[in-house]
Amino acid sequence: MPITIKELHIKINVDEKSASQGKAGGSKNGNTAAIVAACVEEVMDILERQKER
């Protein structure tokens, strides 16, 4: 009998201190805003797909 996985939850922890060392502070804010905007867009797409069902 095959096993079907319906949901998969992935949790990660990111250490910003080691990632931000050596980068300029100004570009970090621009990248953060772009990432947040992309995440918001993806969430809105997911919510729209759920409404269609």
Results as ranks from 00 to 15, higher is better:
E7L: 10
K51V: 15
E16R: 10
G26P: 02
E7M: 09
P2W: 00
V36A: 09
G25Q: 07
K23T: 10
A38C: 01
I3H: 05
I10M: 03
A19R: 07
A34L: 13
A24P: 04
N31W: 06
V40D: 03
I3T: 00
K28R: 09
I5P: 03
V40T: 06
G25D: 01
K11N: 14
A24E: 09
T4M: 13
S18G: 04
E16P: 00
N29Y: 15
A37E: 01
G26K: 06
K11F: 07
T4H: 01
A37Y: 07
C39S: 03
A24I: 01
I5R: 08
N13D: 15
T4C: 03
G25C: 03
E52R: 15
S20H: 08
A38R: 09
K28P: 02
E52W: 00
V36Y: 04
N31A: 10
D15V: 04
I10C: 05
A34Q: 15
I12E: 10
S27V: 11
A34R: 14
A19M: 04
I46V: 12
E7K: 14
A33G: 15
D45N: 10
K28A: 06
T4V: 10
A19K: 06
E42M: 12
V14R: 02
N31G: 06
A24N: 11
V43E: 08
V14I: 07
K23R: 11
V40L: 05
A38M: 06
D15M: 02
A34N: 11
I3M: 09
I46L: 13
E41T: 13
Q21K: 10
R49N: 09
A24Q: 01
N31I: 13
D15C: 07
L47R: 14
G25H: 05
T32F: 15
A37T: 03
K6G: 02
L8A: 11
E42Y: 06
I10D: 00
H9S: 10
E7Y: 11
K51L: 10
Q21H: 04
L8M: 02
V14K: 08
A24V: 04
G22Y: 06
Q21G: 05
K17Y: 05
V40P: 02
